[in-house]
């Protein structure tokens, strides 16, 4: 993990923003400094419930939830370079697994997580298996269709899913006898999920598999010539992304205790994708920044209300044209 550290080219520190980026780079070039800032951030996050009101905790919990989803989608879009437009479907798979198993079969919440992981993997393989052999852009539209299929199925399988009105009475998780029913409980639960997701993403990114994703993303033919099974590698990314969303979906269902198909529409998938692109595809801190921006922005600018998605669309287009690497700066080499 030794990152090459090269002295900054003096010429780059000209314009204001680039200059700031440059200085940050120099500052964070030292590993100890990075560790310090990371530690301070974790400390701040842990102590917020001591001072913040429930409104703030609600928003931050929601942001944490989106950070996990973004990190999951980042594996698919950022690492493997595949466009998934139906990511909310996997989140639905997790949420409905927990919802159905706890409300109708009286399962313990924690036991539904392995079940949700299992179903997410199955769903990922069913969708990814056949389409990943084809050109990557077909995947985008198939996932879009899959998102719709999942939503329609959730609406129509009334006995199981409660149809359009959804499921209610989902069991909240308990933790050693403590029922998690306060917002600060969920704040910590989702915070732990974020830490876990960051950890897993980081380890994956800096592994043999993580490199294979990058090889395939950069040049599929060359990767294949090097003996990399491009379909298997992409499927890995797709399925791991699905598992992230599935697990996040379980906790979402546990927190809300009620879910309905409309939570999982295309807009949901588009929103997550938006955050990933905004933060910077392939970059873990970028995902955190992207998800936070996505949740905080409409909270701060309440008046935008209905034009929120319109603004997102415009930002998405502008980002890709003017700053495709996202908000988080690219690592220099």
């Amino acid at each position: 993990m030794a990152e090459p550290s090269t002295p900054p080219p003096a010429a780059a520190a000209t314009s204001g923003l680039a200059g700031l980026e440059e200085r940050l780079f120099v500052f964070f070039d030292k590993r100890s400094r990075r560790r310090l800032v990371q530690g301070l951030l974790v400390l701040a996050a842990v102590s917020i419930p001591l001072v913040g009101d429930s409104y703030l905790l609600e928003i931050l919990t929601n942001s944490f939830f989106y950070i996990v989803l973004c990190l999951g989608l980042n594996i698919v879009v950022g690492y493997a370079g595949l466009l998934d437009l139906g990511y909310a479907a996997f989140f639905a798979v997790g949420a409905y697994t927990t919802g159905i198993l706890t409300s109708q079969f009286d399962w313990n919440f924690w036991l539904t997580i392995p079940a949700a992981v299992f179903f997410s993997i199955i769903a990922g393989v069913i969708i990814g298996g056949p389409t990943l052999r084809l050109r990557s852009d077909y995947l985008a539209i198939v996932t879009l269709g899959f998102g719709e299929i999942t939503r329609i199925a959730a609406r129509n399988l009334k006995e199981l899913t409660g149809g359009a009105s959804g499921l209610i009475g989902i069991n909240r998780p308990s933790f050693f006898g403590l029922e998690l029913n306060q917002i600060h409980h969920y704040y910590y639960v989702f915070f732990i999920l974020v830490l876990l997701a960051v950890f897993v993403s980081f380890r994956l990114q800096h592994s043999r598999l993580g490199r294979a994703w990058q090889y395939v993303r950069e040049d599929e033919d060359a990767a294949e010539a090097m003996g990399i099974d491009r379909v298997a590698v992409k499927l890995y990314a797709y399925v791991i992304g699905a598992v992230f969303a599935g697990v996040a979906g379980c906790f979402f269902a546990g927190k809300m205790t009620a879910i309905s198909p409309e939570t999982f529409q295309f807009m949901q998938s588009a929103t997550i994708l938006m955050a990933v692109v905004l933060g910077g595809m392939g970059k873990i801190p970028g995902m955190i920044v992207g998800a936070l921006a996505l949740i905080l922005f409409p909270e701060i600018f309440r008046e935008i209300g209905s034009v929120r998605m319109l603004v997102f669309g415009v930002v998405l287009v502008m980002m890709m044209i003017f700053r495709p690497q996202g908000i988080w700066p690219e690592r220099r080499n």
Partner: peptide, 9 residues
């Protein structure tokens, strides 16, 4: 990348 097919993690 060349070693990918000779390893398995």
């Amino acid at each position: 990348s060349g070693m990918h097919c000779r390893t398995r993690a």
